[in-house]
Design a protein around this nucleic acid. Structure first.
Lengths: 227, 227
DNA sequence: CGGCATCCGGGAAGATACTG
DNA sequence: CAGTATCTTCCCGGATGCCG
């Protein structure tokens, strides 16, 4: 019977919402789709191009990425921008409101870091490493540490400023820093969080300072096997 | 050709993980499935039975609920318990670690409360209302407020204690409270967050106190239409 | 009747190949 | 490089039925 199903949007709507006035439920409608939160994560330190996102989100397919970007744009969490003329290509950037998702990333990451099932040997994007620094900075250990460290991950470079027990990250060329550390994100993470020897990393400037920087972070304790 | 697909777990694994060492990504593997976070929300104030969850999660189907419960149990976020003999039936309760998901619910809810697309007229579970109290308590407004309020939502009853600008919630029969307020969660929310008149609610004990209690909460401001 | 197990249809996610 | 087109696989949601 009913032929009237072509233009009807209803059949796709029941999938969408939770029909729940709770703010958390609405949050899931905004960023609860698969990959959505990780796309937002990659935008936390500045605009990124389509290919950047594909590279740093291991396993996402082009059509799903496009779909997430369109949805997140429609919901107001990111906007499409045109990069300055030299490289006239589109990029995606979090809106002011979109940037406010960061505490969600942090609390979720902190919660999951306690999981016995967490596998730290998987690939790690440069942004993820920087975000983990922001999340896991140990105020006690950073007490007497004031410095500006450059971090180089392949093509990505960041400047991390630690001052007054707080940590800031900027995505920009390394300049005016006290020391630098270079290496793949996975390897730096292995040193910082896994206690691996720092010998595989490349240092510049005040090497002792850079090595000390790598000790400022503490993971929350794992849950015991019977929680 | 390949008949060997029965015991193979490979076809379901690529869907599962994100192949990403980032804690946030692992968090999504833990609670990123549809409904999972809302199931955890319903357990934040104590154990619940299968039918309770079905009732308070509008629209979830029995098989999906069962699947989520099994997965969350396997991941260590909740455990199955047997209720005391009088009502010898199973119930589900968050583990100690599972309870730590609350900050994620709060930050996500606070983020989403700023969304222009949030519809506060949808159904609201009793637990959601209590969680919103915990999240949206306004320290400034609660400055001089110290009291114990009973909240009755149909079959559910809670005791909310406000002291020293902090708020605690217990799921238990109303006893030893200074005042009570009764009504459907949606209606209480409309009064607290929507400025609706409190005339539809039923009060007990010190009514003025209960009415003042309903003014202690503040939603974050909405984002403007162009963020 | 509450707590599930099973079957089915539709739609979202994933892989691959192709195009401007 | 930034998508689009197509096809396959899998998950979600609804209905039904078993079973204590």
């Amino acid at each position: 019977m009913q032929l009237e199903k072509l233009t009807s949007k209803r059949p796709s709507e029941p999938r969408r919402g939770y029909g729940d006035a709770c703010g958390t439920a609405h949050g899931l409608e905004l960023v609860g789709d698969r990959w959505a939160l990780l796309v937002m994560r990659e935008l936390m330190l500045g605009a990124r191009r389509f290919s950047d996102l594909r590279r740093d989100l291991p396993g996402i397919s082009a059509n799903v990425l496009k779909q997430r970007l369109d949805e997140l744009e429609a919901r107001g969490l990111l906007s499409r921008i045109r990069l300055p003329p030299p490289a006239a290509r589109d990029a995606y950037q979090a809106t002011d409101w979109g940037l406010e998702i960061e505490p969600v990333l942090q609390t979720l990451g902190r919660f999951a870091a306690r999981s016995p099932g967490h596998d730290p040997t998987l690939p790690l994007s440069a942004v993820s490493l920087m975000m983990s620094f922001r999340t896991m900075i140990d105020a006690a250990k950073a007490e007497e540490f004031n410095a500006r460290i450059g971090v180089l991950n392949g093509e990505d470079s960041f400047v991390v400023t630690v001052r007054d027990r707080k940590l800031e990250v900027e995505r920009r060329p390394v300049a005016g820093v006290d020391a630098t550390v270079a290496g793949p994100p996975e390897q730096i993470a292995a040193v910082v969080y896994g206690g691996a020897p720092a010998e595989g990393l490349a240092f510049g400037g005040d090497e002792a300072l850079a090595r000390r920087f790598l000790t400022l972070f503490t993971l929350p304790p794992k849950v015991e096997n019977r929680g």
